[in-house]
Simulated assay, not measured.
Amino acid sequence: MLETPGRIEPCFFEEHIPAGLADLLIDIQREAAQLGQGLHPDSAAELADLVRVMNCYYSNLIEGHNTRPRDIERALAGAELEEETRPLALEARAHVIVQRAIDEMHETGTLPRPTSGEFLTWVHRAFYDEMPDEFRVIEHSDGTREPIIPGHMRQDGGKEVAVGRHLPPSSSRVAAFMDHFDKRFQIAARSSSGRIIAIASAHHRLNYIHPFPAGNGRVSRLMSHAMALTAGIGGQGLWSVSRGLARGLTDRGEYKRMMDLADSPRRGDRDGRGNLSEAALKTYSEWFLKASLDQITFSTKLFDLAGLEKRYRRLVEDPVDDKRAPDLISAVLRHGALRRGDAQILLKTSERTARNTLGKLTSAG
């Protein structure tokens, strides 16, 4: 088995960007720039918190863990959970907490380089620090159990792993592979097009290295989220890369098949100059970016202000028996916030009537 870091090459397309990928880059940048246009920043931030729950739901679904969004929200609120749903809900809560921290670091300009060991070990540590005890241990096929140490990559002397047919680098070589991984993707990040394409290729190459004993899939999806932010296509946090990977373009099995395809070895002299197939990397990257574009387009329509306002108005019409309530909720959506005292002015009614309308809305959640 090749144990030199060059085993993960090619990491990206250095000589020229394939035409299909170049077209996708333009479409992604255009759609991402339109996402959330017209929304007040405060409203966009509130909606982004809902998208985090969706991102987490689909990320867990990829792992075979089906957690209801309602249970995720209850876990985030600190509510008491049913014993049978508690572990999965707390696992989901951990994902949301880490993604929220990533978004805050990006907002404040303190987000580390997403492909760096510093960032990836922090993600793993922050995620597993929040995990329930049930999910902080690995059960091996030979019946032995190994505790998961938050933030620790596989090291010399550790148990070797296999992912389906794929045999990742030996534990003793992980540090060298990760150093090479970060250096190569620093080069990719020097151009705007490279930063976007690298989201796809880094996602696969990190999982190919499999640096952690467990949790690599979740870490890679959170890395992809962070890379989208730094590439300028984060769309205010209003789209979910995990939803695209979990759903695929035609069926839910595409993600696994495409990741397996990108494992393919070089197929001959016309298939690049690395250990792995450049043609397979191109096919996989096109799929990954098409899935991302599909989600950005979906979210652009979902968060169009006019359509969003109509849905919010309908949302309150049934549970709130007050014809003024939709007007009040529309104002909050458009302005991001509303002083309680301004409800009377907005609704053009008495202070008491406005207070009653506001009370019905808050009581309904």
Rank of each mutant, 00 (worst) to 15 (best):
L2P: 06
E3G: 06
I8H: 01
E9D: 15
P10Y: 00
D23N: 12
L24V: 07
L25F: 12
D27Y: 10
Q29L: 09
R30W: 13
A32G: 12
A33P: 12
G36M: 04
P41M: 12
D42P: 00
D42C: 02
A44W: 09
A45G: 10
R52N: 11
H65G: 06
R68P: 03
E73P: 00
R74Q: 13
R86C: 06
P87T: 10
A92H: 02
A94Q: 00
V98L: 08
Q99G: 00
A101P: 03
E104R: 15
E104W: 11
E104S: 12
M105Y: 01
H106A: 14
T110R: 14
T110Y: 03
P114G: 05
G117P: 03
W122D: 02
R125M: 05
F127A: 01
M131R: 01
D133P: 00
E134L: 12
F135Q: 07
F135K: 05
F135C: 02
H140S: 04
H140F: 10
D142Y: 02
T144S: 14
T144M: 03
P150L: 04
H152S: 14
M153E: 03
R154Q: 03
D156W: 00
A162M: 06
A162C: 07
H166I: 04
H166P: 00
S171T: 05
S171E: 05
S172Y: 03
A175W: 01
D179N: 04
F181D: 02
D182E: 15
D182I: 04
K183E: 13
K183F: 04
K183L: 09
A189L: 06
I197L: 04
I197P: 09
I197A: 01
A198S: 15
A200E: 11
A202P: 08
A202I: 08
H204T: 07
H204E: 04
H204D: 01
L206N: 03
Y208D: 07
I209H: 04
H210S: 07
F212P: 03
L222C: 05
M223D: 01
A226R: 04
A226M: 06
L229C: 05
A231F: 08
I233G: 08
G235H: 01
Q236D: 00
G237S: 11
G248P: 10
T250A: 13
D251H: 15
R252H: 15
G253T: 10
M259A: 10
R267I: 01
R273W: 10
N275Y: 15
E278H: 02
E278F: 02
K282F: 07
K290F: 02
A291Y: 09
T297K: 15
L302H: 14
L302E: 14
A306W: 04
G307L: 01
G307V: 03
E309N: 13
Y312W: 11
E317H: 05
K323L: 11
P326W: 06
P326Q: 02
V332G: 08
V332L: 14
H335N: 13
H335Q: 13
A354Q: 08
L358C: 00
G359F: 13
T362A: 12
A364R: 07
